[in-house]
Design a protein around this nucleic acid. Sequence first.
DNA 1: GTCTATAGTCGGATAGAC
DNA 2: GTCTATCCGACTATAGAC
Lengths: 224, 224
Amino acid sequence: MKPPIASPAAEQTRNALVTAALRLFGLQGFDGTSTREIAAAANANIGSIAYHFGGKDGLRMAAADHIVTTIQSIAAPAIGQIQEALETGMSPADAHRRLDVVVERMVGFIAARPEAGEIVLFVLRELSRPSAALDRIYAGVFEPVHRQLCLLWEQATGEPAESERTRLTVFTLIGQAVYFRIGREAVLRRMGWNEIGPGEAGKLVEVIKGNLDAIVAARRRDRP
Amino acid sequence: MKPPIASPAAEQTRNALVTAALRLFGLQGFDGTSTREIAAAANANIGSIAYHFGGKDGLRMAAADHIVTTIQSIAAPAIGQIQEALETGMSPADAHRRLDVVVERMVGFIAARPEAGEIVLFVLRELSRPSAALDRIYAGVFEPVHRQLCLLWEQATGEPAESERTRLTVFTLIGQAVYFRIGREAVLRRMGWNEIGPGEAGKLVEVIKGNLDAIVAARRRDRP
DNA sequence: GTCTATAGTCGGATAGAC
DNA sequence: GTCTATCCGACTATAGAC
């Protein structure tokens, strides 16, 4: 637990530890990372981990919380805007356009942005080996974002937001983006790329947006 | 290295170790799994790991090789059949139908089959932290399968198999399936499912096949 | 081929000095 | 609050008995 009154120096140590832990856990996994390594990367002392977080597990939870607040602060304006539009009503074309924008942002964030990469990798590791940290991330990020997208999908296609098909379809959209992070190594080799930078990310966005457009159009044809 | 002449008992120990290692590495990661644990799961002795594989790393390579031969034996007939059809020529509709079948198989394999789950998890861990083991898996499984799919895609849509867009599109297809393994925990929670069994897998197949149909149709419209 | 014993390393946690 | 020293447990690898 965080002490009630924290000096600026203490807060700085805390932040450095959380940041380093997030990066190293994401890159090497929880088991693959030692507290000594984290302390060294944060220019902090090993003992400070126990002091600030009670131990390695506490540091994992703190990293998860950090992710939740980070993403929420990034996504809050976008979600608010969508929420507002949902309440005042929007046309299917408008919803479709907003979906395009979301895909663009999501692909850029997940597949290409290096700072975001740490977060994505951390979350993926939590997904593959769920711990208490995942519960917070799921409740704070995953579920609300997925729900928003389902609502947008309903506006764009007319399919009920909470229908099984809609929820699964939204997962397939997310999956297309996520794969370019997960399978990055295979993608790089097969494409002959050295990295997924802005240029490559643009190509991914184009393809995934093309897929989205095709799927939305087909679904809309199903419900005239 | 495998000794030149192996008794049946030795071979059995070897196999038990590789099988156990594959499962545990996939579930817990390489660092998260101890050789003691593997030996116990295989009903073998700790020393036998050093004897048969030289050490923990050798066991990882052996597990990778096991995956390659397993998948190749499963996929060989399907690939041969496609290869044959490619040589004698096939209609776009025929190619599209074959793509549907591939998606069905792939989703069933990746997302639902429990025995396959071990393999998928192992591969995903290798992708996120590439080692020499990944090289074999990539060359033996990944690259050839992806290449086949690109050829099928060309037959179905008319887009060149090795164009950037085709290769990326095939990755988005794979990504849709893979995500249901990676993000399984999030999917289960959001869908209110307890597992991804045959029933759930059927729903995934339906959605992903629907997506595939929509994308293929759109691409074909682009090249009349 | 299989197993036991052991050497050597590294990890997380803690107590106590400052 | 920060840092050092240290304990104790767990791990891999190896040597040698059988």
